[in-house]
Structure formats: structure tokens, C-alpha cells
């Protein structure tokens, strides 16, 4: 029987380094979409807390820490980035192979994203531990702020090459502008 070798969404595309900016791929054990049934938010939150130590986040927030995070994804939906979970009282879908997870890091990373998204990324509005759904170029994207100059972006896996292309282009522009070239 043939042995199949799994390929990550960023295989052959990442990492990209431009000046002091880097774009890398984030590997998660699993990516699970959890949508609590009506009125089940509390028990689902408790079950998640038990399972991975992170409760259900409010709108636009992320709970937990690297390796076991829960990020708000939209109306009534969160993404669990970490071990696989299956809390009762929620619609649960394994989307591990559905997302490309990119990390943009380094001085000027906010200027890079400002070229691609209409999201207001100002310091006092999009803070560490915040999550937002918006557009990256023409793609829908989940933005997580995980550090002072560190952003994680989740785009649909089929869009990985386009996302890397757009981000690389913006990184080059920002780096060139900063070096005065």
C-alpha cells in the first residue's frame, strides 16, 4: 500500500524573509470549528476549559496560550487551534486541513498589513489577544494579534499561494520604503 505524505499548505512557499520581516507557517495539532447550539455556550465553554484550559472567547477575542488557543471566528463560531476537541452541545467540525496559518513578525508588520486589509489595526483598537475577521486583499481572513509585532492570519488553504504572494509583495514594499531604497 502506498504511503501518503501530508503536505502543509505552505510547503514550497514559506518561510519568506524580507529585511527584518518574516512570514512563516504555523503548525497546529488540529483546527476544530466549534459552534455551540443555542443556549449551550456555558457548558461548551466549561468543556473546553476542562479539555485544553481555554474557555470560549467573547466577540473578537482569543483565549488560551500558544499550542491551545480558542479564537473567535464569527457569529456563534470559534476555532480551536490545538489538540482535537469534541465538546458536547456544539456542532464540531475538523477543519485541520482547511486553513493556511501564516505568521507575520517583525518591525513594520502592521504597515505590511495596512496595505492589504481595511481593518483598523491601531495599537489601542487591535491589541494582543484580539481576533478579527476581515479581508486580506480579496480573501476573507481571520487575524489574530499574538504579540507586539506579531500577527497570525488564517486563510482558506486553497488561497495559501495567493496570500503568500500578496504578503511578500507588501513586505518588500515596506522594507524598501524603510531602507530608503
Amino acid at each position: 500500500m502506498a504511503k501518503l505524505i501530508a503536505k502543509s499548505p505552505g510547503a514550497g512557499l514559506l518561510p519568506v524573509r524580507v529585511g527584518s520581516l518574516s512570514l512563516t507557517e504555523e503548525a497546529h495539532d488540529a483546527i476544530t470549528c466549534v459552534a455551540p447550539f443555542q443556549g449551550q455556550e456555558k457548558p461548551v465553554s466549561a468543556a473546553l476549559k476542562d479539555a485544553i484550559g481555554a474557555a470560549l472567547p467573547g466577540v473578537g477575542r482569543v483565549t488560551g496560550k500558544a499550542g491551545a488557543r480558542v479564537a473567535w471566528l464569527g457569529l456563534g463560531q470559534v476555532l480551536v487551534l490545538g489538540p482535537p476537541v469534541a465538546p458536547p452541545g456544539a456542532a464540531v467540525t475538523d477543519q485541520s486541513d482547511g486553513w493556511a496559518c501564516l505568521t507575520l513578525e517583525g518591525p513594520g508588520s502592521r504597515a505590511v498589513l495596512a496595505r492589504l486589509t481595511p481593518l483598523d489595526l491601531r495599537e489601542n483598537l487591535f491589541k494582543r489577544g484580539h481576533a478579527a475577521r476581515s479581508l486580506l486583499g480579496h480573501m476573507t481572513c481571520l487575524f489574530l494579534r499574538t504579540g507586539v509585532e506579531r500577527y497570525e492570519m488564517l486563510v482558506f488553504r486553497s488561497m495559501a499561494a495567493t496570500a503568500v504572494h500578496e504578503l511578500t509583495h507588501a513586505m518588500q514594499s515596506v522594507a524598501a520604503q524603510r531602507s530608503g531604497a
Binding site: 466577540v59 464569527g74 457569529l75 478579527a132 475577521r133 476581515s134 479581508l135 476573507t140
Partner: peptide, 8 residues
């Protein structure tokens, strides 16, 4: 429709 956002 907020398709590029929360989906509401």
C-alpha cells in the same frame, strides 16, 4: 451581509 467579517 457582512461576508468579509462576522457573517451577520
Amino acid at each position: 451581509y457582512h461576508g468579509g467579517g462576522c457573517g451577520a
